[in-house]
Simulated scan of single mutants.
Amino acid sequence: MGGQGAGRVLGVNLRARRDEQGISLSELARRSGIAKGTLSQLESGSGNPTIETVFSLSNALGVPVSSLLSEPSSSDLVVVRSADLDVLSGDAVDLRMLRRLESPGSLFEVYDQRIRPGKVQHSTGHPGTEHHVILSGRLRITARDQTQELGPGDYLAFRANVPHEYEALDGEVASVLLLEYPPDVHPSTLDSLHLS
Results as ranks from 00 to 15, higher is better:
Met1Trp: 11
Arg8Asp: 10
Arg8Met: 07
Gly11Trp: 00
Val12Lys: 07
Asn13Asp: 02
Arg15Val: 00
Ala16Asp: 07
Ala16Phe: 08
Arg17Lys: 15
Arg18Thr: 12
Asp19Gly: 14
Glu20Arg: 14
Ser24Gly: 13
Glu27Ser: 08
Leu28His: 06
Ala29Pro: 04
Arg30Leu: 15
Arg30Pro: 06
Gly33Asn: 11
Gln41Ser: 15
Gln41His: 14
Gln41Trp: 06
Leu42Glu: 01
Leu42Phe: 09
Gly45Gln: 03
Gly47Phe: 05
Gly47Leu: 03
Pro49Phe: 04
Glu52Cys: 09
Phe55Gly: 04
Ser56Tyr: 03
Leu57Gln: 01
Leu57Thr: 03
Leu61Ser: 06
Leu61Glu: 00
Gly62Ile: 06
Val63Ile: 13
Val63Lys: 05
Pro64Phe: 02
Ser67Lys: 03
Leu68Asn: 01
Leu77Gln: 12
Val78Gly: 11
Val79Pro: 03
Val80Asp: 05
Val80Ser: 11
Arg81Asp: 04
Ala83Cys: 06
Ala83Gly: 10
Asp84Leu: 08
Asp84Arg: 12
Leu85Phe: 09
Asp86Tyr: 02
Asp86Lys: 01
Ser89Gly: 10
Leu95Gln: 04
Leu95Cys: 03
Leu98Asn: 02
Glu102Ile: 08
Ser103Gly: 14
Leu107Tyr: 01
Leu107Arg: 09
Glu109Phe: 03
Arg116Ile: 09
Val120Tyr: 02
His122Ile: 11
Thr124Ile: 15
Gly128Lys: 03
His131Pro: 06
Val133Thr: 14
Ile134Val: 07
Leu135Ala: 09
Leu135Asp: 01
Arg138Leu: 13
Arg140Lys: 15
Ile141Asn: 04
Gln146Thr: 15
Gln146Ile: 13
Thr147Leu: 12
Gln148Trp: 12
Gln148His: 10
Glu149Asn: 15
Pro152Ile: 05
Pro152Gln: 12
Asp154Cys: 01
Arg159Tyr: 06
Val162Trp: 06
Pro163Gly: 07
Glu165Met: 13
Glu167Leu: 08
Glu167Lys: 08
Leu169Trp: 05
Gly171His: 04
Ser175Asn: 04
Ser175Ala: 15
Leu177Gln: 00
Tyr181His: 08
Pro182Trp: 02
Val185Glu: 07
Ser188Leu: 11
Leu190Glu: 07
Asp191Met: 13
Asp191Cys: 11
